[in-house]
Computed example of a mutant assay.
Amino acid sequence: MLPVGLLTSIGGELHASDGTAGLAVTVPGVVAAVSAPLTTVLSGRLDRRWLLVSLPALLAVANLLSAVAPSIAVLVALRVLVGVAIGGVWAIAAGLAVRLVPKVSVGRATSLIFSGIALASVLGVPAGTLIGQLFGWRAAFAAAGTATLLVTGALALLLPPLPVDRAVRFTDVPALLRGRRLRLGLVVVLLLVTGHFAAYTYVQPALERLWGVGHGLVSPLLLGYGVAGVVGNFVGGAGSARNPRGVLVVICTVLGAVVLTMSFGGVRTGVAVVLLAVWGLAYGGVSVSTQSWLMVTAPHAKEAVSALFVTVFNTAMSLGALAGGRAVDVFSLAGAMRLGGLLVLAALVAVVLTGSLRPDSTSVAGESAMVEDRVPDDRIGGLARCAERE
């Protein structure tokens, strides 16, 4: 999400329109959508620890090289590597909690892993915007690359071995789509996330041109959005443990209303502050609530469901950024906001029509005897390696 708050600076220096600069968001989303299931399947029974070290290393290299990109074409090409890394890490990490902690802690650990996804979505933009305003957009990419190198080192030192007893097959992922409830849930994710990113990808120019917010105030406003998103993530996670569908109804209603209101612009910066904070609060709970909702449909196929979720989520990110960019170039910034708001409200209708999700009887793993392993490691309190049949 780093380029979202830097589009104006990137486009200005590299001589690209806002819509073209938005490809820096669109392209990695498309690639991540493809790399998530491919990484899950092609990695076979490879120890997941090695993937969770090598993929962030690739991400670090891509970000560091992006800091010296001479043109928009080179920058977008490097964002392809970002997509490969993000898709693979997300698909593997999302279902990892069951292998890292005792059974009693799996729920909380899963929410914590999902919170990383949500926090990255809401904090990455204001952090990148702040660094970009202080030191330039290239410094923001350099900072991201350096931070990723540190994370890669920590993963190499601290992760226990994560062997896989049963590899995900090529047939497993599409077989899950035979489940009607999972398909409907994925449609909700597609509409909701596409709508959000159609508007949010262009939030910086919208604040400046529709709401008259000074350039120096954009970073603090996005930081407020990020703080609200942190709160929304944990509130949404807590609510999703009890009623994920109810949480999604609230999220879609609030998000759709706010984005549509933002499309009309105004002269009061205080109103924009409130709207952006509510936007962050609502979107902060999207990742954890949607994935928790989908996991119910196939609880024994966590990696495969995660791969599908990542594919749809990143496809939606790309579609949203692309659709928003076309709306900006062909119509206006207000048009992109309205498009986003209407798509989110369409997601609300889909949630209402879908009803509560339950395990699909057609799930590839619903009747299977899949065994999920817990990893022994004294550092995380594991006592012995065991297999648990769910």
Rank of each mutant, 00 (worst) to 15 (best):
residue 99 R to D: 12
residue 104 V to F: 02
residue 62 A to K: 08
residue 40 T to Q: 00
residue 47 D to E: 07
residue 91 A to Y: 04
residue 92 I to A: 08
residue 124 G to F: 05
residue 124 G to P: 07
residue 104 V to L: 07
residue 118 A to F: 06
residue 70 P to S: 07
residue 96 L to A: 13
residue 44 G to C: 05
residue 109 A to R: 07
residue 114 F to A: 13
residue 114 F to T: 12
residue 86 I to Q: 01
residue 53 V to A: 04
residue 52 L to P: 01
residue 53 V to H: 02
residue 98 V to T: 14
residue 70 P to I: 08
residue 79 R to C: 03
residue 80 V to L: 13
residue 48 R to I: 09
residue 112 L to K: 11
residue 109 A to Q: 08
residue 90 W to I: 04
residue 39 T to L: 09
residue 44 G to P: 02
residue 90 W to M: 11
residue 50 W to C: 00
residue 126 P to A: 05
residue 116 G to F: 12
residue 120 A to Q: 10
residue 70 P to T: 08
residue 67 A to Y: 10
residue 63 N to V: 00
residue 88 G to S: 06
residue 123 L to K: 12
residue 72 I to W: 03
residue 87 G to Q: 00
residue 117 I to F: 11
residue 45 R to W: 05
residue 104 V to P: 01
residue 49 R to F: 06
residue 73 A to F: 10
residue 98 V to A: 15
residue 100 L to M: 14
residue 94 A to M: 15
residue 60 A to P: 06
residue 80 V to P: 09
residue 40 T to G: 00
residue 55 L to K: 09
residue 120 A to N: 10
residue 115 S to A: 15
residue 78 L to C: 10
residue 122 V to S: 06
residue 100 L to I: 10
residue 41 V to A: 09
residue 61 V to F: 06
residue 68 V to K: 11
residue 104 V to M: 04
residue 89 V to T: 08
residue 39 T to P: 00
